[in-house]
Write a protein that binds this DNA or RNA. Structure first.
Lengths: 218, 218
DNA sequence: CATTTTTTGGACCCGCAAGTCCAATTCTTG
DNA sequence: CAAGAATTGGACTTGCGGGTCCAAAAAATG
């Protein structure tokens, strides 16, 4: 048994530069289909047409079939989520930095609109261990960035030091997830924006007792 | 209720008592399958086996086929979500009532665990107008209950009157949705609990300034 | 009763989409 | 260049699952 933990490692034993290019083309083609009108129905033939590949190639580069392909796309998309928030997410050292981060999150999801690529992927691939791993990894990294930001604000005295940074990071991540969910359902980013603002206001307000006054957003 | 322009009205022209019973049996059987181990793969034959019905009956009571059946189940589940929070959700008139409500929400979702019936349904039925209608109706009713609670607390002076009740209701609904999402992904209700508590703390804290300046009115 | 309507059973059809197979071609490498 | 390895193309198989059809049984109707 190959209990190396993973079902398929890199997918293929050996890859030339050309092969690598094809593999990436497949992943990005599939990803682009998730942003089309009908992302729910992504068939392997769809991927073939978009990427101009043959059936043989699909299974050559993703021996695990559709599930392996979807997971690869999911990893790609998950990394994209964090990248779209950089460099702001990695440098939450001032209120204006938080503000820029907030704007980047809103912008990203406004562009994305009602169909969430990662969400589509996750329910397409179902509840396999691989899927859970991708989600949890993304959320953990995301949460850690935010918690680090809160801690930095605490050391610089802009957030009350007795607050639990992890706790606030959890609430922010959860609020964003909820906001994205609402975006999927209603098509509007209002819920996301409001929730984000309520939580950020909360962050700032914890500071009012410490500092004399705090400039409000809005 | 049923506007003209619906694809299927009540599903069937005429229903005897026996017919009604069968129809309900089908809906509840399907609903019960959503709580089983493998809710993602609900085939019509699964429903037949669970409910002891024939193929003819399924299409007799749900002429629109699988989609109509799933939407009927979704409506059933959506109503259940609100009912599970009653009577607390409808009477958010004191902090202890809010506390009881919080407990009922957490209890409900802890029991539900990682597989969310409504979530499964919504991505099974895809992004049809009917699906959106069910979700949005649930969320709107839910949000209105909470906003009403906030307003009642404002009139009784336990929440600062200058706050926007709708805004806070939006944040709470969104936070809950996010928490449920995290529950689906991680299997733990910690995110839901934390986010709910952060937001409720926020609600309570808005009151401190008022209480400090106008102490103990009761 | 007789008749009409509703309810039930289940065989059958059909299309879709994942996955297999193998041969042809193009690259790498000694 | 020749041998081996990687890449590519596409026809074919297969199973699953939604939907159709029709006829038999049961129930309402008058």
């Amino acid at each position: 048994m190959d209990h190396a933990g993973q079902k398929w490692d890199t997918g293929v034993v050996k890859l030339t530069a050309k092969g690598m290019a094809t593999r990436n083309r497949i992943i990005e083609g599939a990803a682009s289909h998730l942003r089309s009108d009908e992302p729910g129905t992504m068939t392997l033939e769809d991927v073939q047409v978009i990427t101009g590949t043959s059936r043989g190639q699909l299974f050559h580069y993703f021996p695990g079939g559709k599930e392996e392909l979807l997971l690869a796309v999911a990893r790609h998309e998950a990394d994209q989520v964090l990248e779209d928030q950089q460099p702001h997410l990695g440098a939450l050292r001032s209120w204006s930095a938080w503000e820029r981060w907030r704007a980047s999150v809103l912008a990203r999801y406004r562009v994305q609109g009602a169909n969430c690529p990662l969400g589509t992927l996750m329910n397409a691939v179902g509840s396999t261990p691989g899927a859970a791993e991708v989600s949890q990894s993304l959320l953990a990294r995301w949460q850690e960035f935010i918690a680090a930001g809160v801690r930095e604000m605490q050391t610089s005295g802009e957030i009350a030091p007795d607050l639990d940074a992890e706790r606030l990071a959890v609430a922010l991540i959860t609020g964003i997830q909820g906001g994205v969910q609402m975006l999927r359902v209603t098509g509007s980013s209002d819920h996301l924006e409001t929730t984000l603002d309520v939580l950020l206001d909360h962050l700032r307000s914890t500071n009012r007792a410490v500092l004399a006054s705090v400039p409000a957003i809005e």
